[in-house]
Every structure is written in structure tokens, then in C-alpha cells.
Design a protein around this nucleic acid. Sequence first.
DNA 1: GATGAATGAGTATTCATTCAT
DNA 2: TATGAATGAATACTCATTCAT
Lengths: 195, 195, 195, 195
Amino acid sequence: MAKKKGEKYEAILDAAVKVIAANGYANSQVSKIAREAGVADGTIYLYFDSKEEILIDLFNEFMGQFIEEVRQEIAAMPDVVSKLRKLVEAHLTKLEASPDLATVTQVELRQSDPRLRLALGETLRGYFRLIEELIEEGKAQGVFAPDLNKYLARQMIFGTLDDIVTRWVWSRRHYSLAAQVPQVFQMLLHGLCGR
Amino acid sequence: MAKKKGEKYEAILDAAVKVIAANGYANSQVSKIAREAGVADGTIYLYFDSKEEILIDLFNEFMGQFIEEVRQEIAAMPDVVSKLRKLVEAHLTKLEASPDLATVTQVELRQSDPRLRLALGETLRGYFRLIEELIEEGKAQGVFAPDLNKYLARQMIFGTLDDIVTRWVWSRRHYSLAAQVPQVFQMLLHGLCGR
Amino acid sequence: MAKKKGEKYEAILDAAVKVIAANGYANSQVSKIAREAGVADGTIYLYFDSKEEILIDLFNEFMGQFIEEVRQEIAAMPDVVSKLRKLVEAHLTKLEASPDLATVTQVELRQSDPRLRLALGETLRGYFRLIEELIEEGKAQGVFAPDLNKYLARQMIFGTLDDIVTRWVWSRRHYSLAAQVPQVFQMLLHGLCGR
Amino acid sequence: MAKKKGEKYEAILDAAVKVIAANGYANSQVSKIAREAGVADGTIYLYFDSKEEILIDLFNEFMGQFIEEVRQEIAAMPDVVSKLRKLVEAHLTKLEASPDLATVTQVELRQSDPRLRLALGETLRGYFRLIEELIEEGKAQGVFAPDLNKYLARQMIFGTLDDIVTRWVWSRRHYSLAAQVPQVFQMLLHGLCGR
DNA sequence: GATGAATGAGTATTCATTCAT
DNA sequence: TATGAATGAATACTCATTCAT
């Protein structure tokens, strides 16, 4: 129904990220997003079928790009350990560089609306697969434990990174995420016992 | 203002968990919770100042009890490794045993309302401290890596468990959480490389 | 869903007739009806499921009563000719006595919304049956033409009365309807040629 | 302001009849009419000042033509009785031949918007005068009752025909209108009592 | 304490109309 | 003339909260 693309489409998505990060999803009225984007309320509906669709597109657009970038950066690395370090680095660095986006994805989009959840899950799955492939590769190369469960391992990697970013957002971002990359990487690789 | 305690207080909290797990937070009207609890709408306000307070109390009540139980079970263990295993087991087992509660805490309460976030954070912090103490103890005993950052380590442990439970809830709980305790425990202890 | 009956139910219906007659249906907002009825907007929805339902109930309530009254008055008449005269008199007199109601039923409720049309048609059908029974009786008694088509005859009677009331409403009710009863009665009985 | 005439003017009116008959007035957006007419939304406003004007012109154009045709056909008849028969026949036959137009004029245009009502009334009045002249002629020729009230008689004729067409439209046009001409004619001439 | 009828503030969405191209 | 993207006013309905009983 609604036409996608166009500079107003992008302007509305950008405005939505800004408004939601600042006010919370529940307090982000369509009219507020429209005003921030510099368009009329009705114009929103020329580009999106509903308010909900703004969220879905927002997540898919930005997360899709995020995932693609991470995938490419990882692909360039020579070995699986370097890939893991790169993944950790990319995840934390990219979200630190886009605080509004981080706020929206870590906090505001953890909504439970079934339709929304479904659409977001679809996109996240691409990221999950990327991590799982990395794990498989590590096992094949004999670097990771042979009995490693790839799903649990992915949940450890993603869960750890996700929680780190969430605490950072909740803490109002008082400290640097990038600085923690080496420690997090070590921890994921060798666990609490180290080495 | 509102008096706490009383059997209706508990009935309302129980009803809230049930209703929110079944309908989602956004579709859990006060009147629906009242009906489930077998009281009149207005009665809710004799026990809670606002709908939001139901959520806060719900989280504090159930999570507080959850944390206390975990603390006691851990305290009974002889060494820090056993304690970690017990923590993992308790976290996954208890939430698996209370699916409605798990649904509400993992999905429905990830709301971003500032007031709510603050109150929930308060309670979570108790759990975080418990985990951090365990890490400190492990380092003191020379079992955990001496350069381990206790905050990052806690984020790895909690983030991993949290993500595992969230995926389980989103997957409609098609598989067993308890069965994964040994693998998760191993992974946290020795990382992706194992041993 | 919505509870019926109660003095507020009646107050809202009365207010609706008044507001719609004065402003036209298209310009009769729910809030305007609520204000006229002396209740809050939300109260409307304790008694009606939707704005549309107000119209349906309004028509059924008032027209149902109208039809019942006409039926009883007719039943008391000794012969079919007296009954026809009474029908004409009752139709014109009653609507003349309730100008707001006449305005609403003649003009405002000729809407074409399928749901509305269906509900209103249901009620009108009761009136149609009443007229058709009268025609059958007239034919059985040999007073009306034996080859009279009861449906066409009903359409002539109702169409004539309906148009008379509609013109009267559109003319802003500058003249008396009751005064025309004898002529209309004569005309229906003997046609344009008279006698 | 807006220029009338032109092939697009006609195309828009034709499209309006089609769209309104198919979707109902309330669901006939300007953009829908424009699409059906094969023009841009804005083009509509080169030919009509407002959406309402489309309706007024539509009614005037088609009804005006209808009335003119009836007038000419009647004029050709030798006596007043033949003229009445011709009027009944023309009214029912022409509308039966244009079901979309009948739907729009009988059902969709019975709206109550004051401006609209006024404009439509203007056009209808021409038809009313035609019928009233016929009645006067009948009285002058001694065919119709000398004490016949020409306004009431016109209301009987028009009301009867109008109701017949309305029921036919509402019944989804399951039967033939033309077949009823003789009976309707007889009924109007001699009333319920016949002869 | 307990009730539940009543309140009324709050908001996504539609669509007739405009105007820069 | 013609376009169609953009506008923004307008409105039915929901639901947390109150308070008379």
C-alpha cells in the first residue's frame, strides 16, 4: 500500500529513532515523529501503513545494515578467533557510535506485541545465524570445544553482548563500551576461569 | 497510601501474572486483572496506587523471592564452582517451573517507562550483587581468573542466562531448560574453547 | 456487551434524536450527543457498542413503539375502511406530534450503510406487514379490488404517506399534516379519479 | 470557478455514479472516483469546486435529462390518462434500465446535508411541476376528481413510484419493474377500491 | 472495606483539498 | 491543463482512575 523509499521515508525513520530514544515508545505519538521529521501527520501514512510499521521498518533497516556490516568485517578476518574478536568489537563499537539507535533497539523495541515480535525476530535471526556459523567454523577448525552446543554458545555470545549494551544504555552511557572489547573477548573465549 | 498485604493483595498479584502472560501487557486492562482476581475494579486501588505499581510490586515480590531462594541455595554449597553450577541450575529451573512468571519478567516487563525501569532495576541489582559476590569469591579462591572484571563477568553470566530464558519463552517453551544446565555451566566456566 | 435500559440509556436516545434533528447525522459527533444527554463521552459506550448502534436502537425503539401504537389503534376499528382511515391518521398525526423524530426517521436515517440499512429494514418490515394484513382483509371483505397486488398496494400507501411526511419535513413543517388526513384517505381509496 | 463541460467532466460524473453505486456514498473517496475516471485527484478540482458539487451536478445532469425525456414522451400522448400511464412507465422503465443511477438517486443521495438537499430539491421540483401540470390537466378535462388536491396527488404519484423503486433497489433488484406498470397505473387511477 | 458506574483525557488514522511542478 | 505528493483538521473509542453508595 504505502510507497517505500524516498528522502522523506528516511527522514521519518531518523526522526522516529530520535523521538523514541528521547521519549520512550509509549510516549512517541505519530504527530511528534511527524513534527521532528518536518512533515505533516498525514504524510507519515504515505510511507508507512501504520505506526507499528515504522518500528518494524526502523528495526529492519538499521539492524539489517548493522548485521550486514558485521558480516562483511568478519568475513575479512583470517581466522575464527580474529573473527570473534571482530564480532565483539563491531557489536559494541557500532552501538556505542549510535546511542539513539542503541537505546531504541535495546530498550524500546523489547515490546511484546506479537506482530512486532515476529517481524523483529525475523531480522534478529539473520544475526543469530551469522554467529552460529562462526561457532561451527571454530569447531571445525578445532579452536572451539568439539562438544560445544552452537545454539547455547550463540546465546552466550549474544546474551553477553546484549546485556552489556543494555546496562550501558540504562546507565545513561556513562562509560566507554569499546574499551571493554578485549576483556569481553577473553571471557567469551576462555570463560570465568581464564586462559 | 495504599495498604499492602492481605489475601486480596496476593490475589491481585497472582491474577496480574496470569493475565499479562496470557494477553500481553498492552492488552491487560485493570478491569481484566480485577475480574481474574475476583474483585471489583475499584478494589485494586485499595491495594495499589496505580496500575504501574502492580507491575512494580509483582516484579519485586516474585523476583525478590526468586533472588532470596537462589541466595540460600547457593549459600549452602561448599565451593565457588558448586555455587556457580547451583546458580545456573536455580535460575533456569525456577523460571521453567513458573512459565507465566517467566513470560512476564522476560518479555512483558522489558518496558521502558522510566519510573518502572527504575523500580525494577532496584530489585535486579540485588541479584547482580549476589552474582558479583560469587565472582569475587571465585577470584579470591584462585578459581576464577585474577584479572576478571567482576561487572563484565556478571554481565556474561546474567546476559547468558537471560537470553537463554528469553529465547525459550519466545519459542513458546518447546524444550527443556533444566536439561541445558551442565552445558551452560561448562561454557561459562571455560568459554568457547572449553576445558 | 453494552448494557441496555436504564434512565441514561433513554436520555442518550432522546439526546441523539434532538442533536441529529438539529445538526444532521453527519454533523452529530458522539461528544455532542453526550453533552446534550448530560453524560460523559465514555458513558455512551457503557450503553451502546458504537455510534451506529445508537441510531439502530433509536430507530427500533421509537419506530417499534410507533408501529405498536398504530397496530393497537387499528385493531380497535370495526371495518377495514375505518382501519385505513385510522392508519393514515395515526401515521401523519404521530409524526407531526414528534417533529424531531420525524426529521430523523424521514431524512437522517435514509443512510445507506449496509449494516444500518439491514437493522432498520428489519423494523420497517413489521410496519409493512401490518399494512399488508390490512389490504388482505380489505380484499377478503370485498371492499378492495380483488385483483389488488398487496405488495404494490402497500408500497402505494406507505410511499404516499412517507413522501407526504418527507416534503413536510423538508418544507420546515410550515403547514399541518393532520388536516390532510381526509383527502389522503379518499385518494388512496378511490385514486385520482375519485369516488 | 470551475469550468463545466468537456469530456473529462462527463467521465468524472459517470465514474461517480459507478463508484457510489458500488461502494456507497460514505465509502466513495474523491481519489477512488478519480481513479475510476482515469484522471488525477487534482484534476477533479478543475471541473468541480468540491466533492459535494460532483453529487449536485450528477443529480442535476442525470435527473434533468430523465425529467426532460419524461416530459417529451408525455407531451406526445393524446389524453391525460395515456399521459399518466406513460409517466408511470417512463419512471419505472428508465430507472430499471440504469440500475447504478437508480441506486445512487434512491439510496445514496438521500443524504441530509442542507446544501445538498437544497440543490437536489431544486431539480426535483421540475419533476414535481410536471406531475402537477398533468393533474391540473386531468381535473380540467373532468377525468380526475374535481376536488383533487394537486400537491397531495403529486405526492401520492411520486411517493408511490419512489417507494417502488427504493424497495426494488433494496431488494437487490431481484424482479422486474416494468412488469408492474399496468397494476401501478390502475391503482393510482382508481385507488385501493378499484374500478 | 468493597463496589462498579461514571468519568474525560488522550491518539491513530482518514481524506477532501491545495499547489509546486 | 494536468498531476499527485503533501497537507492537517477532524473524531470515534479506550481505559486508568474516582467516588457515591
